[in-house]
Nucleic acid binder design. Sequence first.
DNA 1: CTGTATCCATGACGATACTG
DNA 2: CAGTATCGTCATGGATACAG
Lengths: 104, 104
Amino acid sequence: MEKKRPFDCGVTRSMEVIGGKWKINILWAISRGEPIRFNQLKRAVQGITNVMLTRSLKELIAYNLVKKKDFNTIPPHVEYSLTEKGASLVPILRTLDQWGKKNL
Amino acid sequence: MEKKRPFDCGVTRSMEVIGGKWKINILWAISRGEPIRFNQLKRAVQGITNVMLTRSLKELIAYNLVKKKDFNTIPPHVEYSLTEKGASLVPILRTLDQWGKKNL
DNA sequence: CTGTATCCATGACGATACTG
DNA sequence: CAGTATCGTCATGGATACAG
């Protein structure tokens, strides 16, 4: 999802997670009220469409930052929550958040 | 240089700095050997072109993370170094770097 | 309710040549 | 040495309709 970068440093790899337009907000929305269902998430992340929410969640799950529980019912019922790895990223994002608010 | 984001959180604003393809590497190159001249920087950030280096530096200067000293000589001689603000970002990037290396 | 299938716009990124 | 001018490409993001 990211263009190729010159060096394979850790920040570069982290950017694959926080670099998209929605993924940070999705992570925060999940961390606030996990577990959370698809449509709750859609309401929490204002302005996001089905397409983008689905895409972003797939990536987050692929990175193992978010996990999905599917109840296999009809109508469908799924729940998203953070993995340990995902939870470990949140404090770092908060630091960045504070820096951004203070310095930009 | 970034697409509009849904919320104006600090991370979002920070992303304007670390979101580009080159800016992180430029920041690191400067922090390693400041002050540094244009062509030194170009060699340090492998693969970057004049165009992208100039563009990125302009943004970093606009955010007040990098400052430029122009000696106004012929041939030209300029030097780039980090501002305090820029220097304050580096440790955070290191944290992200470690997280990325460990978790991705 | 939780997605998928299409098709399209925009802008970040870049190759190349040129300049004071 | 330190840039600028042009012009092209392609990925990201999105609107809309539809499906199980």
